[in-house]
Design a protein around this nucleic acid. Structure first.
Length: 886
DNA sequence: GGTTTGCGA
DNA sequence: TGCATTCGCAAACCA
């Protein structure tokens, strides 16, 4: 038989605790209508914690039913001292009831009784029925309800931390049984409930008396044995109070409840209702955590049966009825859609789902006609993937309208799974299992042999896309992200697909020649290092290297990692003077990095058919809106050291006589900062075409206009500029430019003094994040920061830095995406082709005769992509290889 | 699969 | 008091 676990919550007491726990944040926690939400928020936090802890089968929250109870009947001053409940709290109580309803938790109150009595009665019934019960309260008096099966959890300062009491614990701490708590309280009285008890008898005396005589009655039966003349007198005169106190303090265990245990069944949240409630309360962090609340027993929706038709050569005519908006899904088992097998597809609309393993059917006019028809809207999951896959079949997908993956990413960058089933579940849709569940994972991942399994999964995927369309597009609209989606992200998906398919030519011979030379150097360095170490070891193993350097050779370990000594560059650089081996290790690291990651790595991914590499840009991954690049990553090809930079010599135009042409934004992030902060001083520097780092150096080092800005001062100012963008600390800055922490603090203070509106921006954006739970870019790209109000310093600080950085980095990402869209349109008249994007840089290949036009065209499009308060500056370079485009 | 290291903006 | 600049990808090592 299943275990029965009952969770009983003292509603008023917890609401009260929650309210005062967040009292200091009262003004920060309000919803759009100005309702304070501290108690609701705290209450919900407690629910999350306790539900996870108890995993109850039954739950109930008890409330007090108004001012008068049988206790006030008995003693008119009962609780008479209490201040009126703060209006900021009482206004929240109705919403706590709504919250409970949405969470599927029964709430209950009973006229003339307090919450305690409801809890006492149910706990008593539960004990008899064999439940394990947990009572959550802020009121220590409820400890009297503890039994072997019932634990009382009393919340500590906050609402999530609790002290647990069972009879054993109570005996250990007070030397009495739970029931005797009533007697102790009767003697000592209760200031908050406003009854007096016996004069001069406090907790200590009361406890000792009850330990000795068992109960109030016991004390009076043995009054002559009580030591202390005064005490005896007080006891005699206070007898009536003591007996009254006992009645008041006793929690009723047989209240006339109109419900029973069978009414407390807990089956998990009402998802839609709860989402709506969170939205109304502006509880972004809870919204973000919705998918993660796996600890709760969610109703596992029995998937409804789904009907579908297998498409064959012979029934393609059935697609003739499709019009308007068509749902389409292309299945490719491997992550890399440039090379993956194409395993099948699904197409249909409005309950008519067609599936097939035979991808070549897509080329048939009945299907191709729909996909290529720009009058027919298409709904898909992952537009870019679908474009590339279809292009491999010779089909040009047109007019994608709804991309479940892309919309889901824009709505919440945290939910960035690529698995349709997972994404659907994030949005409360249960009718589709994950790919992992159907296809397996890792080495076992494969398309099911069984048609029934595979086809059903395809059909369900298609239905999920169709079913989620309306809900998600509405949400997009509520986020004011409709334009971001239709004007930026959907067009950029097409352009990225084109760039990926085009690829960039990489000369294997060039890399191979470099590889041979590097191998020689590596072998030489190895010998020298072994010599210096006095033995052979694996230089690439941080563990073995640490052993050699710090144990064998006795160098000073400057930093430790989780697992041992750190041997990172900054450590080794500081040790370089101590032993010549260190320089050689640094060189060895640098060369092997180039060899393994770039020479060998790139050789592995050059396509043998076209001698190109075809990266994949991940459009729905980063938290800021940037792209990332994989297989290979073409956004981190070396450039800073010349040895690394030479890798770029292998990147060449696809035709002889063509050039590589590159344009990059100069200091785009600082310009964005100057614009969104409205800082006049920083804007002036950009408007006057000044070198921003030199200008900053002048300001923070207090140089006069004729003083020379030395390269070192400029370097330091540059570090401060970058630090500001990333949300700096004095510690980080001091480490970065090798100055004392105090000096770093001075620099930052001076910086904020010189750029006062930058300071204001950082404060404002954090404050806005605290209130709304998210930050936004200029194009309304949104990032939720669930940790922004965290009590954990680390988490909160990280969220604060992110709040400052994301609008800057993300707006820069918006800008270059807009530029790319304009660029691709303009290039229709040219042979030149856009090949790569590296965050603030676009790389093209073009015939030499177009170069002079590109030198005007590309910067003019890039710098007019958006209108900021400061000009955007673009620099261009070109050459025979990527290396030479400098 | 996690850790350390190092490449880019 | 603590902690201590953002966003990424990929390699080798090691359990």
């Amino acid at each position: 038989m299943a275990e029965k676990r009952l969770l009983l919550i003292d509603g008023n007491s917890i609401a009260f605790r929650a309210f005062y726990a967040l009292y200091k944040s009262l003004d920060r926690f309000t919803n759009a209508e100005g309702l304070h939400t501290t108690a609701i928020y705290g209450f919900n936090t407690m629910l999350d914690t306790m539900l996870a802890k108890v995993n109850p089968t039954n739950a109930l929250v008890a409330f007090d039913a108004g001012k008068t109870t049988f206790r006030t009947e008995m003693f008119s001053d009962y609780k008479g001292q209490r201040d009126k409940t703060a209006s900021e709290l009482s206004e929240q109580l109705p919403f706590i009831h709504d919250l409970l309803a949405a969470r599927g938790i029964q709430s209950y109150e009973l006229k003339d009784y307090e919450a305690d009595d409801i809890i006492g009665t149910l706990a008593c019934q539960a004990d008899q029925a064999g439940y394990t019960t947990t009572i959550v309260t802020g009121d220590r008096d409820l400890k009297q309800l503890a039994t072997d099966q019932t634990t009382v959890a009393v919340s500590k300062r906050g609402v999530t931390e609790v002290d647990l009491f069972n009879p054993v614990k109570i005996h250990e701490t007070m030397g009495i049984t739970p029931i005797q708590i009533i007697d102790v309280k009767a003697l000592q009285g209760d200031a908050s409930d406003n009854y007096p008890g016996v004069e001069k008898v406090g907790p200590k005396t009361a406890q000792t008396l009850i330990q000795d005589y068992g109960s109030v009655e016991g004390v009076y039966d043995h009054l002559d044995e009580v030591s202390g003349k005064k005490l005896k007198e007080h006891l005699i005169s206070g007898k009536e109070n003591a007996l009254l106190g006992k009645k008041l303090a006793t929690i009723i265990r047989d209240a006339p409840l109109t419900i029973g245990l069978e009414d407390t069944k807990y089956d998990g949240i009402h998802r839609e209702e709860l989402i709506a409630f969170y939205e109304k309360m502006n509880f972004q962090s809870f919204l973000n955590r919705m998918p993660m609340t796996d600890g709760e027993p969610k109703p596992v929706a029995e998937s409804e049966a789904i009907k579908y038709t297998e498409l064959t050569e012979d029934n393609l005519d059935q697609l003739g009825d499709l019009s308007g908006t068509v749902d389409f899904y292309l299945e490719m088992i491997d992550e890399n859609y440039h090379t993956s097998a194409i395993n099948g597809f699904a197409i249909g609309q409005d309950g008519h789902w067609f599936v097939s393993r035979n991808a070549s059917l897509i080329k048939r006019q009945e299907i191709r006609g729909l996909l290529e028809n720009s009058e027919v809207k298409k709904d898909v999951f992952d537009a870019k993937r679908t474009y590339v896959g279809l292009r491999r079949l010779g089909v040009d997908l047109k007019n994608v309208d709804f991309d479940l993956l892309l919309v889901s990413y824009l709505l919440n960058t945290n939910d960035n799974s690529n698995d349709l089933g997972k994404v659907a579940k994030e949005h409360g849709y249960q009718q589709i299992p994950t790919d992992e569940a159907v296809y397996g994972r890792g080495a076992k991942r494969e398309i099911p042999m069984d048609d029934l399994v595979f086809f059903e999964h395809l059909a369900r995927k298609l239905k999920a896309v169709a079913d989620l369309r309306k809900q998600l597009l509405n949400e997009l609209d509520r986020h004011e992200q409709t334009r971001l989606y239709y004007d930026i992200e959907l067009p950029i998906a097409v352009i990225l697909a084109q760039m990926e398919i085009e690829g960039i030519t990489v000369q294997a011979e060039t890399l191979e020649a470099m590889g041979s030379k590097l191998s020689e150097r590596i072998a030489e360095l190895e010998q020298v290092i072994y010599q210096e170490a006095g033995e052979e070891f694996n230089i690439g193993s941080p563990k073995q290297l640490g052993h050699i350097l710090f144990e064998q050779m006795g160098l000073t370990p400057l930093k430790k990692t989780k697992t041992g000594y750190s041997t990172s560059v900054d450590v080794l650089e500081q040790l370089a003077a101590e032993a010549p081996i260190v320089e050689n290790i640094l060189k060895y690291r640098q060369i092997t990095k180039i060899q393994h990651t770039y020479v060998e790595g790139l050789l592995k991914v050059i396509s043998p058919t076209d001698h190109k590499v075809h990266t994949r840009y991940l459009q729905t991954l980063t938290q800021t809106g940037r792209l990332s690049s994989v297989d290979p990553n073409l956004q981190n090809i070396p450039v800073r050291s010349d040895e690394g930079r030479q890798i770029r010599q292998a990147f060449v135009p696809r035709h002889k006589g063509w050039k590589i042409f590159s344009s990059d934004y100069s200091q785009i992030e600082l310009r964005v900062l100057a614009s969104i902060s409205h800082d006049q001083n920083m804007q002036d520097a950009f408007k006057n075409g000044e070198d921003i780092h030199a200008a900053t150096a002048r300001r923070i080092f207090g140089l006069s206009s004729n003083d020379e800005v030395t390269p070192d001062l400029r370097r330091q100012a540059k570090a401060v500029n970058f630090g500001i963008v990333y949300g700096i600390s004095d510690y980080g800055l001091s480490k970065n430019i090798g100055i004392s922490r105090k000096d770093a603090r001075t620099f930052i203070d001076k910086y904020f003094a010189e750029y006062p509106d930058v300071k204001k921006y950082t404060e404002d954006v954090v404050k806005a994040a605290e209130e709304t739970g998210y930050v936004e870019t200029i194009a309304h790209r949104r990032r939720y920061l669930p940790d922004i109000n965290s009590k954990n310093f680390n988490k909160r600080s990280f969220a604060e830095r992110t709040a400052m950085n994301t609008p800057i980095q993300g707006s820069a990402a918006d800008i270059i995406k807009i530029a790319m869209i304009h660029m691709q349109e303009a290039l229709k008249d040219y042979q030149a082709t856009m090949l790569l994007q590296v965050h603030d840089e676009l790389i093209f290949e073009a015939p030499e005769e177009e170069i002079s036009q590109l030198e005007k065209l590309v910067p003019s499009i890039m710098d007019s992509a958006v209108h900021l308060d400061v000009p955007l500056k673009v620099e261009s370079h070109y050459g025979d290889t990527w290396y030479d485009a400098k």
